[in-house]
Write a protein that binds this DNA or RNA. Structure first.
Lengths: 343, 343
DNA sequence: CTGAAAGCGCTTACAG
DNA sequence: CTGAAAGCGCTTACAG
């Protein structure tokens, strides 16, 4: 059972192999009759065109590269899941979503950006919380490969974000209205080149957070600002352990870095004998799958993941089809989910 | 800035383009001098060979297709993460891992199996908890594309599993030793063609579970057997809600279908006023990331995910290199993680 | 050790 | 509406 190629199908159907190709690609200039005859043979013999040949010849492969620090992180997975769901909803799962992870390593990130661009491994690239190296976005532009940034903002790329400032503001305001005075924040890196690097969303969330503090007359101090790098429960524990070594201990923590951090913070706090929310209020971020079930249930900021996934996928498909002029910047609304950890 | 191809590199280096190809592919028959000269040009111009051309010509693409019901499920993600980690550890992230999800739909599964085989989209296929359609495995064999099954066992494929029977036995025994009398089990589908289909691991876990009951003189009854299909928290809630409508209520539930089911069961039980573990002991499966932090912390069976990921990846790489004769069947050990939900 | 040449399986102007 | 032909960018025997 040799693998069938387009020529075999053509012979079996008694047509030229251009006709087969045209049928596969839904070209209009082919008679209904011929098309049907060919379709029948294709189904009968289970013929699948070689993707590499199609890609090589046409210069397009319709793959969407999805780049993130770690595929197996909560947020990445949920975004990927939302995109996946959309592919099924639209019936367009022909667009292969290919995940690339950088392992949070800038050198690997650069290499992947190059590989996708120069090796033509995808027709569009989606990058989650990535800071593309300077100049690369223009190269993508020139090569006709649209780039979509999630959790980042750049003029010369499409972007999809929640309103991070608003999210930070909402979290702080909720805590302030609850009477908290010494509110800390844990977030991703705030500065390029520093240990934790630069995270657009961290900077925005912190800005909103600070704005709320100021508006309520609380002077934002840096004593409870902590940055973090890998967004895990273990890291949350570690950070709050170190906070407990300070003289003053905060009465609230906003984990802009995500629910996993928040779960870690709560674990550490409980271990140190603090009652949640009485002694310490905790607000997370992302409304991860298990946030409603941890102890106590976590108050958090929800990102409308499905909406983000839908936007990203549709945008990628449209952009591959060159249907977008200029750059599109989508901002979606965050939502405060009140549970028990910060009441 | 036109994209550079192998001919351009050859011209720039002043050699034939076979020489460039040989350098790229580490052929031995090339002088050190020539190789270096070519390498320098490649780096300088950021040349990346076209993957589709390589694939088309060589018939190999070194991609590993990873198929599961839903990429964004806990277990899938953790397995993918483990594989990913291994790719970085070995430096072999040239093997692209391409996830395909079936959306738990048999027709889509069949289509994907065909697509990968006939469209040559990957050099190896890894399928998680899938029942390949009859005959397809032989076709993969003939095509030289190794197939690796996780959470399933078939003679004519490589397989990686935990000892599911033992896992079921351990869970039941722990509950029995704790004095539980009316133990229920929730697991995946037990029979092909039935509503929930057939899951190899469900059947094995239940067999081990039943064996323990018998050994302790408890007659296994079917009244507390529930099957499930999507392994979510919501489903767990739904199932236990319906169990609560029975006259007799179990004093223990083993959620062989995973920790998400277990979290759902606990939510439902608490809602009905049951105390955990006093009124109801719950044992989960998988030791998912948040299991230690739910309320109460979940006793569960841990699968050594990293070991599984490592085995799968190494096996795929070896098999692509034709270094495996016959079929390899790996079985790894489960582990009971005791927390508070079943003491 | 080096290079010329065939060909992988398609798509896409182009001519009829 | 149909088909002949060029060519995408590589790899790999093969001859020298």
């Amino acid at each position: 059972m040799k693998k069938l190629v387009i020529k075999d199908i053509a012979k079996l159907a008694g047509v030229s192999y251009s006709a087969v190709s045209k049928t596969i690609n839904n070209y209009p200039d082919i008679s209904e009759e011929t098309r049907e005859k060919i379709q029948k043979i294709i189904s009968k013999y289970n013929y699948c065109p070689s993707k590499s040949a199609q890609t090589l010849r046409s210069g397009k492969n319709n793959n969407i590269a999805f780049m993130s620090g770690r595929v197996a992180s909560h947020f990445t997975v949920e975004i990927l899941g939302a995109i996946e769901k959309r592919t099924f909803a639209t019936g367009k799962y022909m667009h292969g979503i290919i995940p690339y992870s950088t392992n949070y390593d800038t050198a690997i990130m650069n290499e992947i950006f190059d590989k996708i661009l120069y090796g033509r491994e995808a027709s569009a690239i989606v990058a989650l919380a990535m800071n593309p190296p300077p100049g690369i976005l223009q190269k993508y532009r020139k090569a006709g490969i649209p780039a979509i940034l999630i959790e980042n903002y750049m003029e010369n790329a499409h972007t999809v974000n929640i309103d991070n400032k608003k999210a930070g503001f909402m979290a702080a305001e909720y805590l302030l209205k609850g009477g908290r005075k010494n509110i800390g924040i844990i977030c991703g890196g705030l500065k390029a080149g520093s240990k934790f690097g630069y995270s657009y969303s961290a900077v925005e969330r912190k800005a909103g957070f600070d704005a709320a503090l100021e508006q309520y007359g609380v002077k934002p101090g840096d004593e409870y600002l902590e940055q973090c790098g890998n967004y895990t429960i273990a890291e949350g524990i570690e950070i709050f352990d170190s906070i407990m070594e300070n003289e003053k201990v905060p009465d609230a923590i906003f984990c802009a870095s995500g629910d996993m951090t928040a779960v870690g913070v709560m674990e550490s706090a409980k271990k140190h004998g603090l009652k949640i929310p009485d002694d310490l209020a905790v607000v997370g971020f992302d409304d991860s799958q298990c946030s409603a079930f941890v102890n106590p249930p976590l108050t958090t900021i929800r990102q409308p993941i499905e909406e983000i996934g839908t936007e990203v996928f549709d945008m990628a498909v449209e952009a591959i089809g060159s249907k977008i002029k200029g750059f599109r910047h989508v901002v979606v609304e965050p939502e405060l989910i009140v549970r028990k950890s910060a009441s």
